[in-house]
Amino acid sequence: MTKVEAIIQNSKLDAVKTALHEVGVEGMTVLEVRGHGRQKGHTEVYRGREYSVDLIPKTKLEMVLPDAIVEKAVQAILAAARTGKIGDGKIFLTRVDEAIRIRNDERGEGAL
């Protein structure tokens, strides 16, 4: 089982969700996050005052998937979220030791 974490542009959330559903991903967690990579922050001057955003608002998706569909899911995210410009985001994969369904104590890939 693999955990897939993807940080993407806010505007790409709907497209990525649709793409993931199409490859069979049934569950995910969505978070509103702020952060930065190499994409520089943004400064807007309003009435002579500077409002700079060093931590840019982004959307983070987290999901734990059976190994069989991990690559498909990653491809789906890449296709839906990519614009080719700096600020597109990143995907991270980590191994997961166990997954448990709270309702009935089901374990392993069946719980995903």
């Binding site: 542009q9 806010n10 505007s11 959330l13 709907d14 943004h42 840019i56």
Partner: peptide
Amino acid sequence: LRRDIFNPET
């Protein structure tokens, strides 16, 4: 807000 608010076109 669901679009790119730093994009001049938006």
